[in-house]
């Protein structure tokens, strides 16, 4: 492909090819401090190509493709090319990953102990992870926690943190010195702006951690905490994992071990400060 960018995020190497310069230039800037894949060999290939040959020039439209694809993935306008790249990279893991059990979760770590925050879109995973990073926690990722079935440890996947809508201003205020990507307005998920993980997060991204707390946050409710039993955590995590079924017995063993060893709580919160205080009190 015309423009190529290779990067390693945590244990995962990507090779991104693009018909256009812009998405690759944006990735190059934002992932400047990241290494390249080990030995130059990527785990996954991502392709950003025109939906039709002429759509490279006229109303350019980016099709999301790669080693693993969804047949009905909607293309994005070139102005949202960076989002397309991030979505395509996530999709490779979501559909193709078989080494790690994937949990759709944000993870932060302090003193070797990790807190895993899981929930549906809008629960506040990315926002809380960014705010905790502002308070000195190591950001391990805002999208996927990678659980190693052999060790039970969580591996980091600190890609760009995807902030949406009102969260953008909240995190900008908390992290005035941080680097951010361009504001992409009016995407299918609303306004999106990416936060670049800090140097600590990138420097330590090869270091896994033991999960000590699993949190199910829910934004927009009166403050409430509730202990979640291993059975409920198991069921909710199977729904929050894209590859639990594909891993078969290994997935079941990794998941049951994870919920047995990691105490879980449901956390309803009316605003970010309340959530941060509750999480830090537990962690």
């Amino acid at each position: 492909m015309r423009h190529v960018f290779s990067v390693r995020i945590g244990p995962v190497g990507f090779r991104v090819g693009s018909d256009w310069r812009a998405p690759v230039a944006a990735l190059r800037t934002l992932y400047a401090g990241y290494p390249t894949p080990d030995d130059g060999i990527a785990d996954y290939n991502v392709r950003l190509s025109a939906t039709r040959p002429w759509r490279r020039f006229i109303r350019p439209s980016v099709a999301i493709a790669g080693d693993y694809m969804l047949p009905d993935a909607a293309p994005l306008p070139l102005a949202h090319g960076l989002l397309a790249a991030e979505m395509a990279m996530n999709l490779q893991l979501a559909l193709g990953e078989r080494r790690f059990l994937l949990l759709h979760a944000a993870t932060v770590e302090r003193g070797g102990e990790a807190i895993v925050l899981t929930g549906e879109s809008g629960a506040g995973k990315s926002t809380l992870a960014a705010l905790l990073a502002a308070r000195g926690w190591r950001l391990m990722g805002d999208e996927f926690a990678l659980v190693d079935p052999e060790t039970g440890l969580v591996h980091a996947f600190p890609r760009l943190v995807s902030l949406k809508n009102a969260a953008i201003a909240v995190v900008r205020a908390a992290l005035p010195a941080a680097r951010f990507g361009p504001l992409m307005a009016g995407t299918p998920k609303g306004d999106i702006r990416h936060l670049v993980p800090d140097d600590t997060a990138v420097a330590a991204m090869q270091v896994p951690a033991r999960a000590v707390r699993l949190v199910f946050p829910r934004f927009g409710f009166a403050a409430e905490r509730r202990t979640v039993g291993a059975g409920e955590a198991f069921v909710r995590l199977t729904q929050a994992s894209t590859n639990y079924v594909a891993l078969g017995e290994r997935g079941f063993a990794a998941m049951t071990r994870f919920v047995r060893e990691t105490p879980a709580m449901a956390l309803d919160y009316p605003d970010a400060d309340a959530a941060i205080a509750a999480i830090e009190a537990e962690g």
């Binding site: 080990d38 060999i41 990953e97 078989r98 080494r99 891993l247």
Partner: peptide, 12 residues
């Protein structure tokens, strides 16, 4: 090593 990891996952 990266090829070995990719192929080990493919076998699983």
């Amino acid at each position: 090593a990266p090829v070995e990891a990719i192929l080990a996952a493919a076998i699983l």
